[in-house]
Design a protein around this nucleic acid. Structure first.
Length: 480
RNA sequence: GCGCCUCUAGCUCAAUUUGGCAGAGCAUCGGACUCUUAAUCCGCAGGUUCUGGGUUCGAGUCCCAGGGGGCGCACCA
C-alpha cells in the first residue's frame, strides 16, 4: 500500500455502519459470521480493557463497534494508542460480542488521519452555538441533530427537483451578477468587474432572468438560486440564502397555490411520513388544501380594520400612527394598508394559509387583479407563522410594466431606497411577448427549518455568515 | 443600529450575602484491567478567568470602556 507518513493514498471500504446493522443486527451474543468486511471512519469512543480494546467507529451512515483483542490485533499498542477523532480503516470479521454488541473484530487496521486537535466532550459535544457554526466540521461529528438536519436538507432539495422535473419543469442557472438589481425590493451587495470597469450587484432575486427565459419559450422553468440581500442577520435571516423560483406559462396564481401546497405536502410526506408536524411547540397541518383568504379579509378579521384603497390617506396614516408604525412621506394607501396588515395581522397567522391579493403599489411585477382595481393577483404563503413563499400572476404587459417601474423610480426619488430600478432589457423582452404566466419564490431555508423543526436559519445553513474570527492565523482574508 | 443576557482549562461546567490560595468531569500524558457501552480505578499535567482601565490590603466576583456571542426590537424571505 502506498503511504506517506504511514497514511495511505487511498482506501477501499466494502461496508458501512448502517449496512452492517441492517445485515447483521440480529446476531446472538457471541455469534461469529465468518463475513469479513472493510470499514472506515472516525474513532469516536475508546474503551481500553488492557488486553482487550473496544472502539466506536462512526462513518457517514452511523456507528459500529470495533473489537480488538491483544492476541489477534496487529500492532495492538499502536491501535490502542489511537486518539479520539482519528480516522481509521479496519478489516475484520463481523461478530457479536458476548454482551451482544454488533462489532467488527480487528484483523488489520490502518490510520487514515490523525486528529491533532482534541475532540469536544464526548457526552456534551459543543453547546456554544458560535463554535458550532464556525467549526461545522466538528459540529457535524458531535451533534447528531445537525448532521441529520443537513442530510434532510439535501434530500428535500433533491426531491424538490425530481418533483418539478416530473411536471415538465427544467432547471436553469441564471447570472448571479446583475447590472441592475431587480425582482425584489431589497438592498443589494455591490461589486466591481475590473476588466469591464463595471459595477455589478449580487442578485437579490433571479426573477427577471427567469421570465426572460419564459419569453424565450422555456414554458416551465425553475432555479434553485442563492440570492444575496444586504440586510440584518437574525434567527430567520442570513445575508445569502436559497430561493426556489419557478415560472409556469399559461398558469395564474391559483394554479401556483395548488402547486405550492402539493409540493410542500409531498416533501413532508416523503421525508417525515406525515403532513402533521409540530413546529416550535405548535401543531401545523400541511395537508392539502390550505386555507385561502384575502389580505383585506384577514386585516378585517385580525386587525379589526375595514379599510380599502379609497380610504382617505389621513385616516390610514392615523391608524398606522396609533399602532406605532413609522409612516414615510412616499407611502401611498397600498403601502399603508400593507403596513397595517404586517403590524396587526401577520404576526397572528400560523397557517398554512395563502394570503391573497396585495396592493398594486407594493407589487411592481404582479398583474392587475381581474376584479379588484388597484390590487394585484399575488399571494404569500404563511406556514408556521413564517412567510414561506411569494407568488403572483405575472405582469405581462410591457406598457404597464414601464409605468410600474416609473412609479418605483418616483418612489426612489422621494426616499424609498429599496425601490426597483428600470430594467430596459426586461421591458424589451416583454415587448417580444410573455404569455400568461404564474411565478413563485419559496424560501428554501425556511422550508427546511419547517421540515427539520429548527427555529434558527443557521441550523439549516452549513456555513452561515459570521463576523470573521480575530485570532491570528485563523481570520484569513487577503490583507490579514 | 438600540435594549437585555452572556464570556472561567481543548470540551462541559463549578467557585458561599460586592470580594480571601481558580476547582471537577471528559479529552491529553503515565500506570492497572480479556466483554466494554459516556467503561472503571490510580497518578501527572493543563489557566493572560475575553481585553484594557478603575475601586480595594486583596477582584473570576464590584465599577467603567472595548470586543465576541445569544435573545428581543427594526428591515426583510
Amino acid at each position: 500500500m502506498d503511504t506517506d507518513n504511514g497514511i495511505p493514498y487511498r482506501f477501499e471500504p466494502t461496508a458501512d455502519a448502517a449496512g452492517l446493522h441492517a445485515a447483521h443486527g440480529d446476531l446472538e451474543p457471541g455469534a461469529e459470521t465468518g463475513v469479513e468486511v472493510t470499514i472506515a471512519g472516525r474513532l469516536m469512543l475508546r474503551r481500553d480493557q488492557g488486553k482487550l480494546f473496544f472502539g466506536v467507529l462512526q462513518d457517514a451512515t452511523g456507528r459500529i463497534q470495533l473489537f480488538a483483542p491483544q492476541k489477534t490485533t496487529p500492532d495492538f499498542d499502536g491501535f490502542t494508542g489511537l486518539h479520539l477523532g482519528d480516522w481509521v480503516g479496519v478489516t475484520g470479521e463481523v461478530i457479536a460480542t458476548r454482551r451482544g454488541e454488533l462489532s467488527v473484530r480487528v484483523g488489520s487496521w490502518v490510520r487514515l488521519a490523525e486528529a491533532r486537535r482534541p475532540f469536544p466532550d464526548k457526552w456534551h459535544g459543543i453547546t456554544d452555538t458560535d463554535t458550532r457554526y464556525r467549526q461545522r466540521y466538528v459540529d457535524l461529528w458531535v451533534t447528531d441533530e445537525a448532521r441529520e438536519a443537513f442530510l434532510l436538507r439535501s434530500r428535500a432539495i433533491s426531491l424538490m427537483r425530481r418533483w418539478l422535473e416530473d411536471r415538465g419543469f427544467i432547471e436553469v442557472e441564471t447570472p448571479v451578477f446583475h447590472p441592475i438589481p431587480g425582482g425584489a425590493l431589497a438592498m443589494p451587495f455591490t461589486t466591481h468587474h475590473n476588466a469591464l470597469d463595471l459595477d455589478l450587484y449580487l442578485r437579490i432575486a433571479p426573477e427577471l432572468y427567469l421570465k426572460r427565459l419564459t419569453v424565450g419559450g422555456m414554458e416551465r422553468v425553475f432555479e434553485v438560486a442563492r440570492v444575496f440581500r444586504n440586510e440584518g442577520v437574525s434567527t430567520r435571516h442570513n445575508p445569502e440564502f436559497t430561493m426556489l423560483e419557478l415560472y409556469q406559462a399559461y398558469a395564474d396564481y391559483t394554479d401556483i397555490m395548488v402547486l405550492v401546497e402539493e409540493l410542500v405536502a409531498h416533501l413532508a410526506e416523503s421525508l417525515l411520513g406525515t403532513t402533521s408536524l409540530t413546529y416550535d411547540g405548535r401543531e401545523i397541518d400541511l395537508s392539502v388544501p390550505w386555507t385561502r383568504a384575502t389580505l383585506s379579509e384577514l386585516l378585517a378579521e385580525h386587525g379589526g380594520l375595514e379599510v380599502d384603497l379609497d380610504t382617505p390617506r389621513p385616516e390610514l396614516v392615523r391608524l398606522c400612527e396609533e399602532r406605532d408604525i413609522t409612516v414615510e412621506d412616499h407611502y401611498g394607501p397600498g403601502k399603508l394598508i400593507l403596513e397595517l396588515y404586517e403590524k396587526t395581522t401577520e404576526p397572528e397567522l400560523w397557517g398554512p394559509v395563502f394570503v391573497t391579493d396585495y396592493p398594486k403599489e407594493v407589487s411592481p411585477l404582479s398583474r392587475d387583479h381581474r376584479d379588484r382595481p388597484g390590487w394585484v393577483e399575488r399571494f404569500e404563503g404563511i406556514v408556521a407563522g413564517s412567510e414561506l413563499c411569494n407568488a403572483f400572476t405575472e405582469l405581462v404587459d410591457p406598457d404597464e410594466q414601464r409605468e410600474r417601474f416609473a412609479a418605483q423610480e418616483a418612489g426612489r426619488a422621494t426616499g424609498d431606497s429599496e425601490a426597483m430600478a428600470v430594467d430596459e432589457d426586461y421591458l424589451r423582452a416583454l415587448e417580444y411577448g410573455l404569455p400568461p404566466t404564474g411565478g413563485l419564490g419559496i424560501g428554501v431555508d425556511r422550508l427546511i427549518m419547517l421540515l427539520t423543526g429548527t427555529t434558527a436559519i443557521r441550523d439549516v445553513i452549513l456555513f452561515p455568515t459570521l463576523r470573521p474570527e480575530q485570532e491570528r492565523g485563523v481570520s484569513g482574508g487577503p490583507d490579514a
